[in-house]
Structure formats: C-alpha cells, structure tokens
Design a protein around this nucleic acid. Structure first.
Lengths: 175, 175
DNA sequence: TATGAATTTCTGTTAATACAGAAATCAAAG
DNA sequence: CTTTGATTTCTGTATTAACAGAAATTCATA
C-alpha cells in the first residue's frame, strides 16, 4: 500500500507514542496503518508498507489481537487473512481501556487484596501502611466500578455526560 | 528504612506496573516507597531500602520531580533533601494524568493539526484518510476539554459525578 | 574563599528488548 | 497424500535501557 507523506507522519508518530504506552513501535504502527487504510490489509502488505520484518508483523498482529483491536476478514478467492481495525476513536479508546484494565487494574487489585489480607495477620506492618494500601485499593475499586458503568454506554450518552461534567463545574464554581 | 514483607510486595508490584506505563522500574519503586513511608526519606535511605545504585536514585528522583510527584522537605539540622509524595490516590491519579496529557495528548494533537494542514494542500492524501485523522483530532480535543473541566474538581465532586454516571446508565437502561 | 559533605554527571558494563531472516510447522485444496 | 501458501517458532544480532562506580560539581558553612 502506498503511503502519502501525511500518512507516513501519522503512522510514525503513532509508533513513537506506542512506546510510551508499553506496546512496541511496530505494534502501534501497524494499528495506525490499519486505522488509516480504506480496506483490510494482509500481513504481506503490512510488511511491505512499513518496511519491517514479516515475522515482526506476525508477532505484532497477535499482540493487537490480544487487545481485541483487530477484525479479521476473509476475502473471496484469497486464502490470506486480511486485517482491519475500528475506525471510531471512541470505540478504540474503550477497547484500549478495557485492555489496560485487564492488564493493569485487575492484577494490581489482586495484589492489593493479598497485601491487605497478609498485613492483617503479620503483626509487623504499621497501621498507617495498612491504611494507605486500603486507600489505593478502594480508589481502584471505584475506578473499576466506574469503568463497568460507562463501558457499554453509546458514544452519544458519553458526550452528554462530559457536557454534564462541565455544567457541574460551572454550578459549583458559582456557589 | 526497614520494609515488612507486605511493603516489599507492594513496592515490587508497583515497580512491575511502572514498566507498563513507560516509567522505569526504579522510578515506580521509589514512588511506591515514598507513598508507604510515614516520613520523608533522603536519597541515601531510598538507596539502602531498595538496594539500587545511588546514581539510579538520583536520576529517578529527577524523573519523579518532572512529573510533579515529589514534595521536597528540608529538615532542621540536616543538609540533605528529603522527599515525600502525596498520600491521596486521587491527587496522585490527577497528577499522573496531567503528566500524561503533557507528554502524550498535547504533542499528538500538535502532530495531528500539522497532518490536517498538510493534507489540505498536498493533493494526494485521500479524503477518507483526512476525515479519519480529523476524527482522531476531534476526539482528543474532547478529551482535552474534559480534562480541563474536571482537573480542578475536588475529590468529593468527582465522586458525585461518578455516581451520576451510574444513574444516567440506569435511566437509559430502562428506556 | 577554602573545606567537606552531598548531589549530579559521566563512563563503561550488563541486561533486556526489538528485530530480521531462516527453519519448522500448520492448514486447506486438489 | 502432496503441494502450496501462510504462520509461528527459533536463533543470532543490534539497539535501547538499567545500573554501578568514579569523577566532577555544587553549595552551605567556617
């Protein structure tokens, strides 16, 4: 697939950002490419367009799939799998949030619960520390609940909620 | 500073999580240590407690400071600087959000705006691609506005907003 | 301004990660 | 059962990041 300079810029930047999010450059670049592409691409096309190793593409596709970011499309008369991704930034955002929740929030809450349990019986962890850990756990549980509540809301509702946020601020600002 | 097994577990886990967020392990561990600590610690104490190189602590402290996560405290009769961090998870969360916004959202919006401008005049970027990039930019601007609106809200107000979110969901669910 | 303690910067080493290319495995169609 | 194309796994290399120790710098105090 032929990239225009702007598409290249977009993809390269996305790749850089990816490294800040704990996914490697190639993974982020592939996602950006599929996001811009008007049609599903197969692994070979991705390899050629981005100029990375075929094997790298294979690994990265698996990674993107584990995030639930890829749709796999079979085309008539072509054995090769073709990949595409969601075009709606909101949907994308949610999917990534879901992934982060599973990879970061859930395991952390598990560890924190263990910490709370163990500190109840170890007779050496200071009360202050116990309380602090409980605070973090509670905070994360609130985030988790919130995530649960909004994860299925349609985009339009979410936008309303955001505007609501603004109103609450204005209201509170005047009192 | 002496760590109990639970504190150690907490700090080690936080370090692991740090690597998923683009900060290195030591940075995250130092932050976790200061978070649990009942008093500000100096660089030497941090070094001994975590068993990492003194120079590493120095670099990591600078990194944490650049995120606005450290308070520096001078103690009477002690030339050394002592460091502490916020104890309120919400405040912490906001501070990190602010940092991420500056490091990720802001530069990305800049690049996207450049992409939009350049694609207006390059006569080669497909309309579809232009639209897609604009969508992402618009999405990020919405996030940015939202961030602006809620960043100064007190914790209590935010909690109310979250509960409101639940109500909106329930309401919509019934119609 | 000289001194000494503390911090920061510099340098070399080690460890971890990203990556390409080759080899092996798998799956569908004839 | 074989062929063909695709994916996955394996292996070696290169790049990046983490780290320790040494050197240099900073800064408060005398």
């Amino acid at each position: 697939m032929k990239l225009t300079p702007v598409m290249e810029k977009y993809i390269l930047h996305w790749g850089e950002m990816g490294t800040r999010w704990g996914v490697n450059r190639t993974v982020a670049q592939i996602h950006a490419l599929l996001f811009l592409s008007s049609r599903p691409l197969n692994a070979e096309e991705i390899t050629e367009t981005l100029g990375v190793a075929r094997s790298n593409v294979s690994t990265s596709i698996k990674e993107l799939q584990s995030w639930g970011l890829l749709k796999t499309v079979s085309q008539m008369g072509d054995r090769r799998e073709h990949f595409s991704t969601m075009k709606d930034p909101w949907e994308l955002f949610y999917t990534i949030m879901e992934g982060r929740k599973q990879r970061e929030l859930d395991p952390t809450m598990t560890v924190l619960r263990e910490c709370v349990l163990e500190s109840e019986i170890d007779n050496e962890t200071p009360e202050e520390v116990k309380a602090r850990i409980k605070d973090v756990l509670e905070f994360m549980e609130t985030l988790d609940t919130w995530h649960d509540q909004i994860k299925d809301l349609p985009k339009s509702t979410l936008l309303k909620l955001i505007k609501l946020g603004a109103k609450v601020k204005n209201f509170l600002g005047k009192t």
